[in-house]
Amino acid sequence: MRTWNDIEEFEAFLDGGGLVEADDGMPDAFRQEVFRFIEFHANSELMGGLTERDWIPHSPGVRLKQIFLAKTQDEIGHAHLLYMVAADMGVKTREQMTNDLLEGRTRFHNVFHYRAETWADQIAIAFLVDAAAFASQRAVFAECSYGPYKRILRRIVGEEGFHMRHGEEMVLRLANGSETQRKLFQDAINRWWWPAVQLFGPDSPPDDPLLRWHIKSERNEVLRHAYVQKYVPLLQGYGFTIPDDGLHRDPDTGQWMMSAIDWEPLRATLKNDGPDSARRLANAVRNHFETRWFRDAIEVSA
């Protein structure tokens, strides 16, 4: 266990590339901020798994069902790793985090407040949404001054790599498929493009503590811009269009520029007021209640 005399000394330690460990006497503001960030990430992995879950029974093939199950299992596995690491920070127990999520007191990524309406949405999630989440996770992994988080991010980022490749393979299949399949995927892009772009969040505030403390390594707007540069040509290359009338290439820089982002939908999801938030949380609550006898029984046997 290490301690620091004041915040300046602590920040100098972080600036020098220092890694904070769970039993260190870290400043309380750091503990709270990092905990909240990991809890948000954990909630998002779990709710992402629940979004994907809706379409697993409809997988158009036995092998595909097996593959999508394995992918969603990874997301649940990531939630597990993150809740374990978050609980070790001593702010909340796993049970408190579960209850706070189910009772709508904590947040998760905007994208998992939407319902996947078709099979193509399932693939748009695997391709567009996962890629956005992946980009922001990699940017955390790159520095990440909290040791336990950095170590599990290595595993998480590695597994997301499989998901990326699988997602693009699925897009390829629809892109090379029938008119029905192409239209289905275009409709999915129309639904998911903006939520995916909004996932990065509004521009980072000038003095974002997560940047100052080397949890994030990059500003939101920089990550968002890089994402757009990569995915606009990718989707267009597969013959799909981006649902943004104002999208154009800057003649001087060659960069893709978007229309102004409407942040209202994002704000709604942060109040757990997104299009599918209520249904998804209600289902999870009912199930959690109905399986309680089993958790209690296992606990008694401990």
């Binding site: 597990h80 374990m84 796993r94 296992i298 046997s301």
Partner: peptide, 11 residues
């Protein structure tokens, strides 16, 4: 590798 919750060693 990390940690997990379980009732006993076998689990």
């Amino acid at each position: 590798a990390g940690s997990l919750g379980a009732a006993d060693r076998e689990m």
